[in-house]
Design a protein around this nucleic acid. Structure first.
Lengths: 228, 228
DNA sequence: CTCATGTCGATACACTGTATTGATCCATGA
DNA sequence: TCATGGATCAATACAGTGTATCGACATGAG
C-alpha cells in the first residue's frame, strides 16, 4: 500500500472548550435570536459534530446558563462610583444596554437564578453599593426591588421593540395609532382610562421612561435608607 | 350494496372553537409546563388532528397569546376598592396568585405586549385606579413602574421556586445553604457583601417579600401623586 | 508492538411546527 | 333530483430539534 492508496488521516479535531462553545452560541443568538441557537448549528460553527458538545455541557439549558453568565460580564462597571444612588443607577443602565446589545438576554434574564461567577458578581456589586448604609435585610429588599423593576421594565421594552418591528411601525406610531386592533378595542368604550392615555400621553423614548421609573424606585430606597 | 357492506360514515368531527382549544392548552400547561404544550397534544385532547387547529390559530405563538389572555381574566377583581393604593396592591397580588396557579404564565408574561381583551382590561383597571389623582403622564409612569416591578418580582419568585424544586431543597434551605456550588463560590471571598447577606439575612417567605417591595414601590407613587 | 481506554462522530429515535395535498362533505344552482 | 363548486378536515410529508446509543479509532501504558 503506497501513500497514494492510503487516505489522509482524519483531521485532528479542533480543540474545544466551554468558552469557544459559548462564544459561538452567543454569536448565533445575536444574529438570529434565541431560536436560532441549536446544538447542531453551534457545533457546525466549530467544525464539530453535535454530540461533541455533550462533553462540555449536558443539556441545552446549561448552554443558555453559560451564555447568560458570559454576557453578564458586560454589566460589571470598571470602577464603582462613590454615591450609592449613582452606583445602582449605573448598574441598571448597564444591564439595560447589555440587553439591548443581546436582545435574547431578555428572554433568559430572570428566568432562572443567575449563579455563575458573573451573575454573582453583579449581585455583589449591587449589594456592595448599599454597604454600611442599611442593615442587611433592608439592603437585600432594596436590591431585590431595584432588580425586579429593572428586569421587568427591560423585558417590556424589548417586547415592545419586537412587536413594533413585526408590524413595521415605529415606536412613536405604535403608541399613537397603536395598530388597527387596539384602535378598534378602544372604540368599544370599554377602556376609557386607557383611551385617554393613548390619546393624551406625551411620548417619551424608552431610555427616558426607564430612567424615570428607576428614579422613582431609587427614591423609595432613599426613603428607607434615611429612616435608619 | 347492503348496509352490512357499507362502513359507518366517519364520526362527525367534534365542533371546535378557540375557547375549547385554549382550555385544552391551558390544562396541558398547568400539568406539565409550557413545553408540554404541543399542537399535536392539544389536538389529541380534542379528538382532532393537529392541522385542524390551524383554522383557529395560524401559529403556536398565537395560541400562547390566547392562553395568556384567558388566564388574565383571573386577575380582574370583581369590585374596585375605593383607595387607589389598595386597588393597585390588590391587582399586583392577584397577578401574583394567578401566576402561582399557572406557573407557565411567568414564562410568557411580559414577553409580548398583552393586547387581548383581558390584558387590556387589566391595564385599564390599573390606570383607572389612579384616575383623577394625577395627570396622564404621571399615571402612565406609575402604572408602568408598578407592573414592571410586579412582573419582575414574580418571575424571579417562580424561577427560585423551580430551582428549589429541581435541587429538592426547601426555599429556606436554599437561602441558607444555597447549595454546594454557591457555598463554594462564597468561600472564595470574592463576594463579601453577598456572603454577609446569605449569612445574616432573616428569612422571609416569598409573599411577604413581594408585599414589602410592592409597598416601597407604592410609596414612590404616593410621593409623586401628592406632589401634584 | 500490543492492548486497554476513553474520546469522537455517525446513526437513530421520538418529537416538534407547519405546508401540501387529496378526499369528503354540504350548500347551491339547474 | 342531480351535478357542481367550495369549503373543511385528515393524512402525509418535510425539515429540523434535543439527546441516547454504539461502533470505530487514535492515543497512552505495559
Amino acid at each position: 500500500m503506497t501513500v497514494w492508496d492510503r487516505p489522509e488521516p482524519p483531521a485532528r479535531p479542533v480543540p474545544l472548550d466551554r468558552e469557544r462553545i459559548v462564544a459561538a452560541a452567543i454569536a448565533l443568538a445575536d444574529e438570529g435570536g434565541l431560536e436560532a441557537v441549536s446544538l447542531r448549528k453551534v457545533a457546525a460553527r466549530l467544525n464539530a459534530g453535535p454530540m461533541r458538545l455533550y462533553g462540555y455541557i449536558s443539556t441545552k439549558e446549561e448552554l443558555f446558563d453559560l451564555m447568560v453568565d458570559a454576557v453578564q460580564a458586560e454589566i460589571l462597571p470598571e470602577e464603582r462610583p462613590g454615591d450609592w444612588r449613582e452606583a445602582l443607577r449605573d448598574l441598571a443602565h448597564r444591564t439595560r444596554r447589555t440587553v439591548l446589545r443581546h436582545e435574547w438576554l431578555a428572554d433568559l434574564l430572570g428566568g432562572r437564578p443567575s449563579l455563575g461567577p458573573n451573575g454573582l458578581a453583579v449581585t455583589e456589586a449591587t449589594l456592595a453599593a448599599l454597604d454600611g448604609l442599611a442593615d442587611v435585610d433592608t439592603a437585600l429588599r432594596a436590591v431585590e426591588m431595584v432588580s425586579a423593576y429593572s428586569t421587568g421594565a427591560i423585558r417590556r421594552e424589548i417586547a415592545n421593540l419586537r412587536a413594533g418591528r413585526a408590524t413595521g411601525l415605529s415606536e412613536r406610531d405604535r403608541q399613537r395609532a397603536a395598530g388597527p386592533h387596539v384602535t378598534r378595542m378602544l372604540a368599544t368604550g370599554r377602556y376609557p382610562a386607557l383611551g385617554r392615555v393613548v390619546h393624551d400621553a406625551t411620548h417619551v423614548d424608552a431610555e427616558e421612561s426607564f430612567a424615570t421609573g428607576l428614579d422613582w424606585v431609587l427614591d423609595a430606597v432613599a426613603a428607607r435608607l434615611h429612616r435608619t
